[in-house]
Simulated scan of single mutants.
Amino acid sequence: MTDLVLSESLTAVRARLEEALRAAGRPADDARLLAVSKTKPAELIREAWHEGQREFGENYVQEALDKQAELADLDPIVWHFIGPLQSNKTRDVAEHFSWVHSVDRERIARRLNDQRPEALGPLDICLQVNISDEASKSGLSLDELPALAEAVLSMPRLRLRGLMAIPAPAEGLAAQRAPFARLREALEGLRERFPEAPLDTLSMGMSDDLEAAVLEGATLVRLGTAIFGARAHR
């Protein structure tokens, strides 16, 4: 992807997000763009950074660490871990990321808390909810959510910010909105239950359903294909 094409795709995505926020009656700065850079080379991330993009999402720990080393001169840059997280990778994530969107077990949360360097400050956390109840998807159920939220809120080196979900693909705006609405309602329930917690984040919406997510309150939309083009297979 050339500089010109990446510049054009980022401009188009930003305009699309701005229009979605306008249609939802929300302020233009009410949702942020997370550029999903998994499988994409570091030079593309560098190009996007020079176009003003600051937040990037990665799914694979070693791939992300390699990119972070190559891009260490870029400041500020905010790395989000958005993929399934295994116990043997938690230390690397705790030490090298600012956000984790995919926490769905207390064991993983506790390892992240224990391994987070105190000097870095709290690690921002989203709990991943399997909002469509898909057997093949990671995430906890809505019934399990309050207990895990309470556990994470007791961990001093984690900061619970909100919820993340990857709904099953759906056709049509109404069908796309339904699972996002359930996630929004779940976050509202947590806010009532834990009023002192900084629960301000709904990480939801991707290239195919951004508009539906924004209508239901998304504050972080995770777009990869619309910015960088089709993903390379690992």
Results as ranks from 00 to 15, higher is better:
Met1Phe: 07
Ala168Gln: 13
Met155Glu: 06
Ser132Gln: 01
Leu158Phe: 08
Leu220Asn: 02
Gly205Met: 05
Glu70Met: 13
Phe180His: 05
Leu10Trp: 04
Leu183His: 04
Met155Pro: 01
Gly121Asn: 06
Val93Tyr: 10
Ile45Glu: 09
Ala64Leu: 13
Leu190Ala: 02
Ser37Asp: 02
Leu220Val: 15
Ala178Arg: 15
Glu185Arg: 14
Asp208Ala: 14
Ala232Phe: 05
Glu144Asn: 02
Ala24Ile: 03
Pro198Glu: 08
Arg46Met: 08
Glu192Thr: 12
Gln115Arg: 15
Val129Thr: 05
Arg16Tyr: 10
Ala186Arg: 07
Ile108Ser: 02
Thr39Lys: 13
Ser132Arg: 02
Gln115Val: 00
Arg91Asn: 01
Leu140Gly: 03
Leu17Glu: 03
Asp30Asn: 04
Ser141His: 09
Ala48Phe: 10
Pro195Val: 08
Leu210Gly: 01
Pro122Met: 07
Leu145Ile: 09
Arg193His: 03
Phe81Gln: 05
Pro117Thr: 07
Pro76Met: 10
Arg110Phe: 08
Glu95Ile: 01
Gln128Phe: 10
Leu223Met: 14
Asp66Leu: 14
Pro84Gly: 07
Leu173Thr: 01
Pro167Lys: 06
Ser154Gln: 13
Thr219Pro: 02
Leu163Trp: 11
Leu158Arg: 02
Val221Ile: 13
Leu145Ala: 05
Ala69Pro: 01
Leu71Thr: 11
Gly57Phe: 12
Ser102Phe: 06
Ile108Arg: 04
Arg32Cys: 00
Gly217Phe: 09
Val221Leu: 12
Ala230Ser: 15
Leu173Trp: 06
Asp104Pro: 06
Phe97Gly: 01
Trp49Tyr: 15
Leu183Ala: 05
Asp3Met: 00
Leu220Gln: 09
Asp208Glu: 13
Glu118Tyr: 00
Arg32Ile: 00
Ala24Gln: 01
Ala28Met: 02
Phe194Ile: 04
Leu44Asn: 09
Ser87Ala: 15
Asp75Lys: 14
Gly229Gln: 07
Leu190Thr: 03
Ser132Val: 03
Thr39Glu: 04
Thr90Ala: 12
Thr201Asp: 04
Ala64Lys: 08
Gly57Ile: 09
Gln128Thr: 06
Pro179His: 12
Leu71Ser: 08
Val221Gln: 04
His233Pro: 00
Arg191Asn: 07
Val129Trp: 10
Gly189Thr: 09
Leu120Asn: 10
Leu210Tyr: 10
Lys89Val: 12
Gly83Val: 13
Leu148Trp: 12
Cys126Gln: 07
Glu118Ala: 14
Ala174Leu: 13
Glu118His: 09
Glu8Met: 11
His96Pro: 01
Gly139Ser: 06
Ala181Arg: 15
Arg234Leu: 12
Arg161Leu: 11
Ser102Lys: 03
Pro179Cys: 11
Asp75His: 14
Asp104Tyr: 15
Asp66Pro: 00
Val36Met: 09
Arg14Ser: 07
Met164Gln: 07
Pro84His: 15
Ala147Gly: 00
Ser203Cys: 10
